[in-house]
Structure formats: structure tokens, C-alpha cells
Computed example of a mutant assay.
Amino acid sequence: MTATHQITLEQLLEARELRAAHQKELIEKYRLPLVSFTVNMPGASKKTPDSSIIFREGCNALVKRLKETDCVLEYYVSKDPDTGFEAFFVVKTDELSLKALMLEIENDHSLGRLFDLDVIGIDGMPISRETLGNLKRKCLLCKQDAHICGRNGGHTTEALIEKIHSMVDSYIKIIT
């Protein structure tokens, strides 16, 4: 994967709507909480060599963590539209316990800051980090709240992508 496809804001918004619809279908079908996994990737190119590695490692970390617990993976599917890699994991467990497991992965894995592991409860509502007493995510480059920093354009897309590439490179060196 070398050339990357540039997406538009309209495509990104449509992908979010489709993802939300798929989440709703899965919750209605299984009546269990689910993890909706995407990669935190800035810019108009969502499918890059780095995002591919991040996605693969995130899926592996999630499945490994579920196997280490008494959680049962009821359903799994991954997709790779131009708008970015995404996976859905329906898990037989308590939704707050599932959120705690996903926070552990995000906090402990070397690439965890780049994982977006959203837990959707059986009521269809996302469970926030703050529900379990965790702080909002910090920016990759500074200590500000990531959403505020991103909204205010605190850093260039190039600087963020360079940081992500550095994180992936460091991770690869550790595991090889």
C-alpha cells in the first residue's frame, strides 16, 4: 500500500453515518455491547501503510485481550473503505467492563493512542472515557485536550502524520 486515496469531508461524514447504522443493526441483532474500532488518522488519506499497521495491531491487541478475560466474541467483521479501516466486535460481557478493557488497550499499548476503540452500549449510546473516571485524550504533540487542539488547528496535519509515522516506526523496531 503506497499510494493513498484522498477523501472528501462528505465521504467522511457518509462513512460515519454508515458506521452508526451498522452499529445500530448489530446491537439490535445481538442485544450485546460492541466495540467499533477505527484508527485516529488526521488528514484526507485514511488508508496508509501506517494506518494499516495500526489497524492490524489494534485488532490483534483487542482479540488477545478478550481471550485473556471471560469475554466471548460473538461477532466480528472488518472493513476497509477508502474512508479508513474499521472493525466491529460484538462481545458478550458487561458494557462497562468492556469499556475498561478498551481503555487498558488504549492506555497500555505502544500504539494505543492511535486506536479509537469506541464501546457502544446495548442502549445504542457510546460509553465515554469519563464514565470510568478517565480524562479526555491529550493531543499527540502537546498536552491540550485533543478535540480542542484539533478544532483550533493547533498543529499541521503534516506534523501529526510525522508523529504517527515516528510512533509506528518505533513500535516496529520493538517487535522485530
Rank of each mutant, 00 (worst) to 15 (best):
Q23S: 11
K136E: 09
I164E: 13
F55V: 00
A21S: 15
M1F: 09
V168Q: 03
L101N: 05
L132P: 05
D82T: 01
A20G: 02
S110V: 00
N134W: 01
T157V: 13
E95G: 06
M41R: 02
P42Q: 13
I161N: 05
K138C: 01
I172M: 06
A87P: 00
K24L: 09
L103V: 00
K173N: 11
R113L: 07
S110P: 01
F89M: 08
Y75V: 04
Q23G: 11
L114W: 06
F37W: 04
K29C: 12
A44V: 03
T2G: 15
F37R: 03
K79Q: 04
M1G: 15
I27M: 08
I7C: 03
T38I: 11
T131Y: 06
V39W: 10
V63K: 15
V77S: 02
A146K: 02
E28C: 15
A15P: 09
H5N: 06
I53C: 12
T157R: 10
M125I: 01
E10N: 10
M125V: 05
T48V: 12
P49C: 07
H165M: 11
G112D: 10
V39A: 14
A146T: 02
L160I: 06
E28M: 11
T131V: 13
I175M: 08
I164P: 01
E25F: 11
N40P: 07
Y30S: 08
K46L: 02
Q144C: 15
L18N: 09
M102F: 07
C149I: 08
G153V: 02
I54E: 00
M41S: 12
Q11W: 08
I105K: 13
L111I: 10
N107G: 03
F88G: 04
I175V: 15
R65Q: 10
E68N: 14
Y76G: 10
E74Q: 11
I7F: 10
L101F: 14
K138V: 02
T131L: 15
T93P: 04
S170I: 00
K173I: 05
L140R: 07
H5R: 11
T131C: 11
S128I: 01
K29Y: 14
C139D: 04
G154T: 04
P126T: 02
E74M: 00
E68K: 15
V119H: 04
I54S: 00
D80Y: 09
M1S: 13
I164Q: 11
R16N: 05
E104H: 09
T83I: 08
R31M: 10
K67L: 04
E57F: 12
K79P: 01
L101T: 03
I120K: 02
S97V: 02
D70Y: 01
R19T: 05
D116G: 08
S51A: 07
D94H: 07
I54N: 01
E130C: 13
I53N: 02
